[in-house]
Nucleic acid binder design. Structure first.
Lengths: 116, 116
DNA sequence: AATTGTGTGTACTATGTAGTACACATGACA
DNA sequence: TGTCATGTGTACTACATAGTACACACAATT
């Protein structure tokens, strides 16, 4: 599933029940030109900027991290976390590369429960 | 410490003991124009591409992850790891944001010792 | 039958990225 | 004293990013 198709599907789903989710109206609320959103949805142009993706996600009730990933981007707040301790986090992530989802969730839970 | 100053310092350190570490020669081995490397070292231009930073790191015996971070970039192999499971890793990293280095190292070690 | 809403095609633009090419000035040195 | 290595200034370029502006065609509405 491409970024564009995903957005189109998500918007059309909402459009079916609420006429306020036309290309034009969504574009206006998101702050881009309708023709641009149209092109985005048909993958005729590259996905928009992180900021625009964030506004789209909010508008359509989708997960920003997922949308960004479909656009091939990592959210800048996550990037900043890595940039502060690049060696540490790079090593950790390479270590976790092939770990099952469950193991990663467990690690996150351990940390959240603050056992340090 | 900026990217440029760091590179200049690292290169000059090697130059003092080995004449092969002049701007010109390093530039040639790294595959960029000498004037470009000169500008990079004086922070007169933005840091080079990830690929060029990688070659510089190898040439000067520096850590690529550290150099990339000074350039404000996260290495693309680490990005790719995140992009495969964006929600999972984004959550984990936000969780680990303020964790002490030691805790992160410990997590990495646990994973490395394969307890999953 | 005229208006409104719908998506889209075409053309254009500003800024950023990642450099190259070449000339120049200075100091070492043989 | 001419040549060589050293770093650097200036000018230019190709491509990517992130869009805008406006016109057009079609369908539904009133």
């Amino acid at each position: 599933m491409t970024f564009g198709k995903y957005i189109r599907t998500a918007r059309e789903k909402r459009f079916k029940e609420d006429r306020a989710y036309s290309v034009r109206q969504v574009a206006q609320r998101v702050g881009v030109e309708p023709s641009y959103l149209s092109k985005i949805e048909r993958d005729q142009v590259a996905p928009p900027s992180e900021a625009a993706i964030g506004r789209l996600a909010r508008e359509l009730g989708e997960d920003p991290d997922l949308l960004l990933a479909m656009a091939g981007k990592v959210s800048s707040d996550v990037q900043d976390i890595i940039l502060r301790r690049p060696q540490l986090f790079a090593e950790l992530l390479r270590q976790l590369k092939d770990a099952p989802d469950q193991a990663i969730e467990e690690v996150a839970r351990e940390i959240r429960d603050g056992d340090w």
